[in-house]
């Protein structure tokens, strides 16, 4: 199936952006921890946290675009997304990571690690799907 596209860069990855957790607490995007996502999902009635393991990272059809294939959840359902190489994902226990951390840091001033095959990213699914 064709990859879903996350080809835009949302404003909330900019350092200093204010993020509201599910319990109402406000945090800056650069201060978020794995626990913030886990606890917010626990409160949510609609969303649950899933682990998405990076299985492949391929160069996309257009410049600066990569196609990342994830194995989602316990069943490792195959999902691929097409993203700009600086698009950050939150890796469990590690924090923000992208395929090109230098660009992410330059564009968003967001400290970032290199996203690698085998990294386990925070993702969401609908509770009703489980």
């Amino acid at each position: 199936s064709p990859p879903s596209s996350l080809a835009t860069l949302p404003p909330f990855f900019m350092r200093g952006s204010i993020i509201q957790l599910a319990d109402g607490e406000l945090k800056r995007v650069e201060d978020l921890k794995t626990e913030d996502f886990i606890q917010s999902a626990e409160i949510s009635s609609e969303l649950k946290i899933d682990s998405s393991t990076v299985e492949r990272i391929d160069t996309g059809q257009t410049p600066n675009v990569v196609v990342i294939q994830f194995g989602v959840g316990e069943l490792k359902a195959q999902v691929s997304v097409e993203v700009l190489m600086e698009y950050p994902f939150f890796v469990f226990g590690q924090g923000w990571s992208s395929c090109c951390p230098d660009r992410t840091t330059r564009l968003f001033e967001l400290s970032c690690a290199k996203l690698c095959v085998g990294d386990v990213c925070v993702s969401l699914t609908l509770r009703s799907l489980g």
């Binding site: 199936s1 404003p11 909330f12 978020l32 949510s44 989602v72 699914t125 609908l126 799907l129």
Partner: peptide, 25 residues
């Protein structure tokens, strides 16, 4: 009168990609 500048607040879930596993059956 100076109106306070509103700071955008983003919900936590907007930061996380929504990866719905494909239903195999």
């Amino acid at each position: 009168n100076v109106e306070p500048r509103s700071v955008p607040v983003f919900p936590w879930h907007s930061l996380v990609p929504f990866l719905a596993p494909t239903q195999s059956d």
